[in-house]
Amino acid sequence: MEDIEILEKFAIAESRNLAFNQLIRKYQQKVYWHIRKMVIDHDDADDLTQEVFIKVWKNLDGFRKDAQLYTWLYRIATNECLTFLSNKKKKFFLPINDVAAELSEKLDTSPDISGDEIQLKLQKALLRLPDKQRLVFNMKYYDELKYEEISEILGTSVGALKASYHLAVKKIEEFLKHD
């Protein structure tokens, strides 16, 4: 079902729930994986994904029809991730590296993660990046979004995103070379 059709059905009280159910089914995986790659833990990703869709439910009436629905969803999910990671750092009074270390440990111990050594090493390298740079990398490398789309999601210029991505790749390759 097309986004426009979902939005039209959502606007009608009788078909509201059905339209919303279809919206979740269409975008749940994109939203979940976007969040999961940032917070690593499945339970955290599950909570945040539900929170994202509850916010969508509350605010979909005010959504501008000329904007792309999935970039709007990505933006909400991105904000949820950044808020979650920021709160995590404040809650434990830990510097960034310690939260990264905690997430890195989850990569080794979580039963919901499986991959060969090089894949795990890549994920650990990603955790060394600042949160926003990691977001840019994930959206470009894994989700294969265009810079223009990432720009719309993050509200950052295309030039800055290109620079951020190339810097992230350099850092990752440096990490893979030495560690």
Partner: peptide
């Protein structure tokens, strides 16, 4: 190089997770 590493999703979800997620969200709303 980054290109030498195959793109692979190492994260897993519990079985049937995406089947039950819409219902759980709908219950909350």
């Amino acid at each position: 190089k980054l290109n030498d590493i195959p793109k692979h999703n190492i994260y897993k979800v519990p079985e049937g997770y995406f089947d039950s997620l819409p219902m759980r969200v709908m219950e909350q709303t």
